[in-house]
Design a binder for these strands. Structure first.
Lengths: 211, 211
DNA sequence: GTAAAAATACCCTTTAGTGGGTATTGCGTA
DNA sequence: TACGCAATACCCACTAAAGGGTATTTTTAC
C-alpha cells in the first residue's frame, strides 16, 4: 500500500518541487498536494494520511491553526512543518503542539526523505544544525533592543505586527490573551516613543529589528 | 502555437518544480527540461525558444557562459536567470549581458509567470524586494502597479501611511478631506486584497512600491 | 532568597481604522 | 460624445487600536 503523503504549501514552486522530488525517490508514495488550506483541511478530515508536510504561512494564515484543529485526525500521522521561518519560538511551539518534525526549507532532500521514512515516533526532530537558545543572532545582543529595552516577547509581537497580523491573530499564534498583546503593544509604543503600528513598522525596518 | 520554454537547471527539485508549475498554469507551454548544460546548448542552437530559464551553476559551470555563447540564438528569446545566488554584482552582470530578468529561487510562482508572460521588452527585471540605490525599473513600468491598478494618488497615500502618518495627517499634507483619504485606503485594501495597514506596508516593502 | 524584570491579564475611555454604501466632478480616449 | 476611471467627499455601522490604569505570576539576575 502506498504511503499517503499530504503536502500543504501556497508556494507553488515548492509544492511542486517537493512533490516531484518525492515521486522520483522510487518509494511508493501517493502524494496529495494542496496550496489551499481549506481544501487541505477537507481532505485530511476525510482521509487518513501517513505523512503531513505543512508550511506555516498558508494563504496568509497560520499552519499551526490547521495542525491544531486537525490534531485528532493527525494522531497517527507523521506531521512535518517545512518552513522558511526557522525561529526558536516557532520550533518550541511546534514541539508543544506535538508536531513530529520542524524543518527549514533549505533542508537537503535526503534529510527530508529520511524524516518521512523514519515514521511516527516519540522523538521530536528538527534540523541537525539547529542550536537551541543561541541562534545566529542572539536576540539580546541586538544593540537596538538593548537601547530601547525591547524584550524577547515584545520583539516577537513586533514581528507578527509587521507580518500584518491583528492583535487577535497574534494572541492566537502565541497562545496568549488579546489583552496581553494589547499590553505589549502599549509598552512597545511607550519604549519607542511612537503612537501607531505604521511608525512601529517603520522603526523596525530602519533598525533591522526583523532578524 | 505553444510558447517554447527551455529550462536548464541541474537541481532536479527545482527543474521539476518549475516544469510542473508551468504545466499547471493553463497556458499553452511546450516545456523543454535540461539538467545538462551541453544538451541544453545543443537544443538552443537548433531550436528557437520563446523563453529560456537558466540557473547560474549548472554542472559546476557558469550559466553566464552559456548565455553569452548563445547570445545570437537568444536575441528574440526572453532570458531569465533563476538562481539561489542573489548577489548584487551578479544582477548587474546579468543586466549588462542583456539578460531580461534575474530572479531568485524563492520567487513566488505568480511573479515568475508574470515575467514569462510579459514577453521580451527593453526593461530589465529583478525581484520585487530587491533593494538598491538606483531603481531597477521605472515606476510606471512596475508590473505590480499595473497588475493591481494602484493609482498615483493611492500610491502617494501608501507612502504617507508607511511614514507613520494617520489619515488626519495625510489629509492635511495632501490638502484633501479625511473622508477622501478613507476612501482611498478602502480602495487600496480592496485592490491588494488586504485588511489592515500593516499588511499594506508589508506589501509595499516587498514590492518596492516606495520609489 | 530576594529583587527586578518580563510576561501575563483585566478594567476603562477615546481615537483611528475598516468596510458597506452613494455621489459628484473632471479628464483622457475610444 | 459617451464611457471609464481617478479623485473628490459624504453617510452609516462596526472593529481595532491606543493609552490610562492595576495586578498577578513567572522568570531571571544578583
Amino acid at each position: 500500500m502506498p504511503k499517503q503523503i499530504v503536502i500543504c504549501d501556497d508556494h507553488l514552486l515548492f509544492l511542486n518541487g517537493i512533490s516531484e522530488l518525492l515521486k522520483n525517490t522510487g518509494n511508493n508514495y501517493c502524494i496529495h498536494k494542496f496550496s489551499d488550506v481549506h481544501a487541505c483541511r477537507q481532505h485530511l478530515m476525510q482521509n487518513a494520511a501517513d505523512v503531513f508536510i505543512c508550511d506555516l504561512n498558508i494563504n496568509h494564515n497560520d499552519g499551526f491553526l490547521l495542525l491544531e484543529e486537525l490534531k485528532f485526525q493527525l494522531k497517527n500521522t507523521k506531521t512535518i512543518i517545512l518552513t522558511a521561518y526557522y525561529e526558536d519560538f516557532l520550533i518550541q511551539k511546534a514541539k508543544k503542539l506535538g508536531v513530529d518534525a520542524f524543518l527549514k526549507k533549505e533542508t537537503p532532500a535526503e534529510e527530508l526523505i529520511e524524516v518521512i521514512e523514519s515514521g511516527k515516533s516519540k522523538e521530536f526532530y528538527t534540523n541537525k544544525n539547529y542550536k537551541q537558545g543561541n541562534s545566529v543572532y542572539s536576540t539580546m545582543d541586538n544593540p537596538i533592543i538593548n537601547k530601547f529595552r525591547i524584550s524577547k516577547q515584545e520583539k516577537e509581537i513586533i514581528k507578527l505586527i509587521i507580518k500584518g497580523l491583528t492583535s487577535k491573530e497574534i494572541a492566537d499564534v502565541l497562545f496568549i490573551s488579546i489583552t496581553t498583546v494589547t499590553t505589549h503593544r502599549k509598552n512597545i509604543h511607550r519604549k519607542l516613543e511612537i503612537s501607531n503600528s505604521s511608525s512601529l513598522i517603520k522603526f523596525a525596518h530602519e533598525n533591522n529589528l526583523l532578524l
